[in-house]
């Protein structure tokens, strides 16, 4: 018993405990960090290049102005443009000399495989988000998704949580009590 007490009183024991706690804490932090870094996409799609070519968001994510889901373009749609770009279409240029991401796209398109995109903006399935009214009211895509002309793959620009939604809804509808009642109604998103 006395030995145990001595051990506990030993300063190195206390230091060991402290080190252990620190290590466990940092391990937790690292774990949290790994869950927070942007997910790896199958293709590092350069949004910035496309946006800078004046391609509208709705050209590819065409669902956003008429339905809940914005949608993702099919690789057919990708290929519709890329197939016409002389640089890549030219049979003289072998596939292996294409930019690496385009090689991947080619692989998907030729083999008719779906591209498994990893969603960046995601709401839990008890939240029903509808793009259409937002686009119809003139909310710019950048408001939530950030300036895509400066990004390659999409990153999470906003912590998408209820406080953020409600905050914006409250501000936008400050002058219209009827609209506010609708925008702050639980049943608008949760059912």
């Amino acid at each position: 018993m006395q030995k145990v007490l001595d051990l506990i009183k030993n300063p190195s024991f206390k230091i060991a405990i402290l080190v252990f706690v620190l290590v466990a804490f940092s391990a937790g932090l690292v774990g949290i960090y790994f869950t927070q870094i942007p997910p790896e996409q199958p293709i590092l799609f350069p949004h910035n290049r496309h946006v800078n070519l004046q391609i509208q968001c709705l050209y590819c994510h065409s669902g956003a102005w008429k339905q809940a889901s914005a949608g993702l373009p099919t690789e057919q749609k990708c290929w519709a443009c890329h197939g016409q770009l002389k640089k890549y279409f030219d049979p003289v240029v072998p596939v292996s000399e294409w930019p690496i991401e385009l090689q991947k796209l080619n692989d998907y398109a030729v083999n008719n495989k779906p591209i498994k995109w990893v969603p960046v903006y995601q709401v839990p399935d008890f939240v029903h988000f509808n793009h259409r009214p937002h686009v119809a009211k003139g909310v710019a895509c950048e408001t939530c998704h950030g300036d895509m002309s400066k990004k390659t793959v999409a990153t999470l620009e906003q912590t998408v949580n209820m406080g953020w939604c409600i905050d914006c809804h409250t501000k936008k509808s400050a002058n219209d009590p009827v609209l506010q009642a609708k925008l702050l109604d639980c049943g608008t998103c949760h059912y």
Partner: peptide, 19 residues
């Protein structure tokens, strides 16, 4: 916890599952 609430807009009884 306000999980069972009334919709002002639709005048419906709502059950907010996540709450």
């Amino acid at each position: 916890v306000f999980a069972s609430v009334h919709s002002k807009n639709e005048d419906l009884n709502l059950q907010v599952y996540n709450r």
